[in-house]
C-alpha cells in the first residue's frame, strides 16, 4: 500500500471539509472584518440536526435517497435561522463598536450554542446511521471509499455553486462591492444590511452542508465538535488569505493535506519523540506562523489596503 498517496487522498478529503467551513469565515470576514467565532458551532448544529433527522427518518422507513436530502434540508434551514439570528442579536448592534466587543459576543454566542446543543442532545455522541453501504476501491495502491468520493463530489459542487453565486449574480456583485468598501457600496444603492444578512445565510448553508459531510466522514456528531473544527477552518482561511474566497479553498485543502501528512510523518521527523496525536498542533502552528510572517496569507491582498 502506498502510504504517501493514501495520506494525500485522506488529506484532500479532510481538506475539502475544512475548505467548506473556511468559506464561511472568509465571507463574513471579507464583508464585516469580523471573525465569526460562532461559525464552527453552526457547523456543529448542522451536523447534529442532520444526523438526528436522518436517524429519525430511516427509523421511520423513509428510503435513503429521500432521507439524505431531507436531512440536509433540515440542517440548512436550522443553520440559516441560527446564523441570521446570531448576526441580528450579537453582531449587528455592535457593528460600529470597537473590535473587541463583537469578538467577545461571538465567543459568548459560541458558548451558548454549544451548551444549548448539549442540553438538547445530551453529552453522548450521535452516530451517523449506516445508510450507505461502504465500498472500498483500490487506486494505485491506496484505497478510497464511496463515502469519501461522495464527500468530495458534494463539497466540490457546493463550492462551485458558491463561486457562481459570487461571480455571476447580482447578489454576488453586491457582496463583492460591500467587501471592497461598505460605505461606497451603500452610496451606490446596495442595501448593506441585506447583503450582510445574505452573507450569513450563504455561510450558514455552507456550514450545514459541511456539518452533514463531516458527520458522515467521522461517523459521529458531538456537541463540542464545532470549536476545534472552527479554529482549524479559520486557520485554513488565514492560510489562504482571509477575506479571499479562492484562498479559503486553497487554505482548506492545504491544511487537510498538511495535517494528514504531518500526522503520518511526525513520528519519523522527530525521531519518535512526537506521535500522531500531535495532529491538532499543525493548524495552530500554521495559524501562528502565517499571521506572524505573512498576515495576508497565500492569496490575500495586502492587509494594509483594508486597515
Amino acid at each position: 500500500m502506498d502510504v504517501l498517496l493514501q495520506q494525500l487522498i485522506n488529506g484532500l478529503i479532510l481538506g475539502s471539509l475544512y475548505a467548506l467551513v473556511a468559506l464561511g469565515y472568509t465571507m463574513v470576514y471579507g464583508i464585516l472584518e469580523l471573525i465569526n467565532f460562532a461559525h464552527g458551532e453552526i457547523v456543529m448544529v448542522g451536523a447534529m440536526v442532520s444526523v438526528s433527522v436522518l436517524v429519525a427518518l430511516t427509523a421511520a422507513g423513509v428510503p435513503v435517497a429521500l432521507a439524505l436530502p431531507l436531512a440536509l434540508a433540515a440542517a440548512v434551514v436550522v443553520c440559516v435561522v441560527t446564523g441570521v439570528l446570531v448576526e441580528r442579536v450579537a453582531y449587528r448592534p455592535l457593528r460600529n463598536a470597537p473590535r473587541l466587543a463583537p469578538l467577545i459576543t461571538a465567543i459568548g454566542v459560541s458558548i451558548v450554542l454549544q451548551n444549548l446543543a448539549m442540553i438538547f442532545w445530551g453529552r453522548q455522541y450521535l452516530s451517523f446511521p449506516p445508510v450507505i453501504e461502504v465500498q472500498v476501491y483500490a487506486v494505485l495502491g491506496a484505497t478510497v471509499s464511496n463515502i469519501q468520493i461522495l464527500i468530495l463530489v458534494v463539497a466540490a459542487l457546493t463550492m462551485g455553486g458558491l463561486l457562481l453565486l459570487v461571480n455571476r449574480t447580482r447578489l454576488g456583485r453586491a457582496m463583492r462591492a460591500t467587501a471592497q468598501n461598505r460605505e461606497v457600496a451603500g452610496l451606490m444603492g446596495v442595501d448593506v444590511n441585506r447583503v450582510i444578512a445574505a452573507t450569513f445565510i450563504v455561510g450558514s448553508a455552507l456550514a450545514a452542508v459541511a456539518g452533514l459531510l463531516i458527520a458522515s466522514y467521522y461517523g459521529i456528531a458531538h456537541y463540542n465538535m464545532g470549536f476545534i473544527l472552527g479554529l482549524k477552518a479559520f486557520s485554513a482561511a488565514v492560510l489562504g488569505g482571509i477575506g479571499n474566497i479562492p484562498g479559503a479553498l486553497l487554505g482548506g485543502l492545504l491544511l487537510g493535506v498538511i495535517e494528514s501528512l504531518g500526522a503520518g510523518y511526525i513520528g519519523d521527523l522527530t525521531g519518535g519523540f512526537l506521535g500522531s496525536h500531535y495532529q491538532d498542533i499543525f493548524a495552530f502552528l500554521i495559524l501562528i506562523l502565517v499571521l506572524t510572517f505573512r498576515p495576508s496569507g497565500l492569496l490575500g491582498e495586502r492587509v494594509a489596503d483594508r486597515a
Binding site: A90, P93, P102, G108, V112
Partner: peptide
Amino acid sequence: FGVALVLVML
C-alpha cells in the same frame, strides 16, 4: 456564562 457575556457586551 455565554448569555451573560453577550448581554454585558450589548
